[in-house]
Amino acid sequence: MAKQEKVLATDEAVELMDQLKEKHGPLMFHQSGGCCDGSSPMCYPRGEFRVGDSDILLGYVNDAPFYMSKDQYEYWKHTQLIIDVVEGRGGMFSLENPEGKRFLIRSRVF
């Protein structure tokens, strides 16, 4: 039985990531809040957000590492996270904010 990826991205999210990579270089994501669909992961230039012992690496999406706090993971451990994009503003420090779009999480229960 094939192992399920813990985090994926839609084609639209990958397209936005590619645009952001051209402007900012390699990316990373961190999900620190929100316990359900529609939560916004934060996108940073890789290395700009300090991960620590309380964060876990769920996987890579379009070569970008995706981290989540261990406590937060307890809410999500039985789901597959799917990064998507919608119109609107995201987190103030997330790289996509000036683009008029925001990343958000959709989920699929394992």
Rank of each mutant, 00 (worst) to 15 (best):
N97Y: 12
S39L: 01
N62F: 15
F110T: 01
V109W: 02
V7E: 15
R108K: 14
E15K: 15
F103Y: 06
S32L: 01
G91L: 14
L16M: 10
V86S: 11
Y75S: 01
T10K: 12
G34T: 00
M42T: 03
C43H: 03
D53L: 04
S69E: 02
I105Q: 04
F49D: 14
D84W: 04
G59L: 12
D11A: 13
D84P: 06
K21T: 11
W76H: 04
G52A: 10
M17P: 05
S39H: 01
V61A: 13
K70I: 05
S32H: 01
N97H: 12
E48N: 15
I105M: 07
Q31P: 01
L8K: 11
D63I: 09
D84C: 11
Q80C: 14
P26H: 12
Q19M: 00
M28C: 07
F110L: 07
K23S: 00
S94C: 11
N62S: 12
A2M: 08
E99W: 10
C35I: 00
Y75W: 01
H78Q: 09
L57Y: 05
M1W: 03
Y67A: 10
G88C: 08
G38C: 05
Q19R: 01
G88L: 10
A2C: 03
V14Q: 10
A13C: 14
F66H: 04
M68T: 05
L57I: 05
G88S: 11
V86Q: 12
P41F: 03
H30V: 07
E87F: 03
F103A: 02
F93E: 09
S69I: 00
H30N: 15
G90P: 12
M28S: 09
E99S: 13
L57N: 05
G47K: 08
M28K: 07
A64V: 13
R108D: 04
V14H: 11
N62I: 10
D53R: 04
Q31K: 02
G38T: 02
W76C: 02
I56M: 06
G100N: 08
Y67D: 14
Y75C: 00
F103W: 02
N62D: 12
E48H: 13
M92E: 15
G90C: 06
R106W: 05
G90Q: 10
F103K: 02
D53Q: 06
S32A: 02
E48C: 08
S32Y: 02
E15T: 13
F93G: 05
K6H: 06
G59C: 15
R89H: 10
C36V: 03
S107D: 07
Q19I: 00
M42L: 03
E99D: 14
S40Y: 06
F110V: 01
G34Y: 00
W76D: 03
S107W: 04
A13N: 13
Y67L: 12
E22F: 00
G91V: 10
H24C: 11
V86N: 07
L8F: 13
K21R: 14
R50N: 11
S94R: 06
F66Y: 08
C43Q: 03
M92H: 09
V7T: 13
Y60M: 15
C35M: 00
N97L: 09
A13T: 15
K3C: 08
H24G: 13
H78M: 06
P26G: 14
D63C: 15
G47I: 14
Q4A: 15
I83K: 05
A2P: 09
